[in-house]
């Protein structure tokens, strides 16, 4: 479902190419989702969740996605888990557990939002600092810039 948010020609490549260096998006996404599932069914350790979600969202934060689209995959976990649960436990036996799972996934969504914002802010910071770090600081170091005094 995460991969299906890409155009069909692209998602075919992302799903099909298994080499992690030829296909960093696919590899990062699959690895992140695996550890995310572990955290979801475990104790929802924030650090573990961030380290699973961050690499996926870091990619989506710079690609052609709106903010909501970039993290929408988190909420599609609800649908996936429901589909499996309905198949395995057809008689609503796990309604309580599903309710708990929903709120866990909502939590993931909020953490995802934090990560997305952090990535975007980092990007703006890099944008605004790059020129200064590159050229301005070299000139400044060389004493070739006059500081305005007031």
């Amino acid at each position: 479902m995460v991969i299906d948010t890409y155009p069909p020609d692209t998602s075919r490549f992302i799903k099909g190419q298994k080499d992690p260096f030829a296909n960093p998006v696919g590899n990062t996404t699959f690895e992140g989702l695996q550890t995310l599932f572990d955290a979801l069914f475990d104790d929802m350790n924030r650090e573990a969740i961030v380290s699973s979600l961050d690499p996926i969202i870091r990619i989506r934060a710079i690609q052609d996605f709106t903010p909501s689209k970039a993290i929408s995959f988190i909420f599609s976990l609800k649908k996936i888990i429901r589909e499996i649960a309905n198949k395995e436990f057809p008689d609503d036996q796990v309604a309580d557990e599903l309710f708990l799972m929903d709120s866990k996934i909502d939590n993931l969504g909020m953490i995802g939002f934090d990560i997305y914002m952090e990535c975007r802010e980092k990007l703006y910071e890099i944008k605004s600092n790059e020129f200064r770090n590159r050229t301005y600081s070299a000139f400044e170091r060389a004493g070739l810039l006059k500081q305005d005094c007031c």
């Binding site: 155009p7 692209t10 490549f13 998006v25 052609d64």
Partner: peptide, 17 residues
């Protein structure tokens, strides 16, 4: 060549193949 371009891999935009 389609999936060898860093811009295609990175952006996922088919027009970057």
């Amino acid at each position: 060549c389609a999936d060898k371009c860093h811009f295609f891999i990175g952006t996922g935009d088919p027009k970057n193949m």
